[in-house]
Design a protein around this nucleic acid. Structure first.
Lengths: 148, 148
DNA sequence: CTGCTTGCAAAAGTTTTGCATGTAC
DNA sequence: GTACATGCAAAACTTTTGCAAGCAG
């Protein structure tokens, strides 16, 4: 965890961005809540606990910056807000999501699963795939058993 | 085309919704621009050409209604707006998209391609898949050749 | 007729921007 | 010291809602 903070800091510096305490706290919050899919507002509130002077605009600016550096991925599950998800270290591609239409739970899938599909797309559609977004909508195990 | 309008009308009636001229014009616009991925504002402007008295709120309400009936799918490519895409007739699942990061063009893929992946998800993650969203981000054929 | 629909305007909510001030390098 | 960052407030957008009036069935 300390390692990952360190590496993100280095990425910021390499890209000529300053290491401000606000950015540091924001990164920390993102790492501590890696399994959640926080909205900008969510991040803002959690950062505010550790650093009360922060402004919402700064959080937005930091999230945008981290997305630009491909440390974060911005994702949208269809409710009105953008959510942010840390990219797994070393992952070439964004991971996938399972959204339960019953309870709203979001699970992550780290397996790639799309290698074959991407090959087909590159060949048949002459499209160079650089990244993807895949979300399944359905019923999670929990809600399935509740129905029985 | 006339057929599809007819069938959409029937779907509305079956669900006890009224056939207002505003709804009719909106459906027509959607059919005429099937290859585009129109935002609510886009639809509003095109409907306004044929039916100037229409209000933006009515368009939003109609789009929501058609989504509910699974005639439309709401999709989000990461710019700030929701876009709407007609579901292909008879398609169980939403089709996929190729978004070019260079020129912004959006191409559609109607092949399913995900059957195997969905089987894995159902088995390994105990998740009943009902629908999916798959978008590839990359470089389209056109932009690839421009670079040479 | 009756209840669903509409148009308008206002409201709600998210995200962006301008600007004076602050601060990492 | 200088250029980049920040906080605040205002602005810009998209989407939703309340309500009186309209109209499809």
């Amino acid at each position: 965890m300390e390692n990952r903070i360190q590496r993100i800091k280095e990425a910021l510096q390499e890209a000529q961005y300053k290491l401000t305490p606000q950015r540091e706290v924001t990164v920390k919050v993102l790492l501590e809540n890696e399994r959640e899919h926080l909205s900008a507002e969510d991040v803002f509130l959690k950062v505010k606990d550790k650093y009360p002077e922060i402004g919402l605009a700064t959080v937005y600016r930091t999230l945008e910056l981290l997305s630009e550096l491909k440390i974060l991925d911005k994702i949208n599950f269809g409710d009105g807000v953008s959510r942010y998800d840390l990219r797994k270290e070393g992952a070439k591609h964004f991971h996938h999501h399972l959204v339960c239409m019953e309870c709203g739970a979001v699970e992550e899938i780290e397996e790639d699963l799309l290698e074959d599909v991407e090959k087909i797309v590159e060949k048949e559609y002459n499209f160079k795939v650089l990244d993807h977004r895949l979300t399944f909508h359905g019923i999670c195990g929990n809600c399935q058993s509740k129905k029985d």
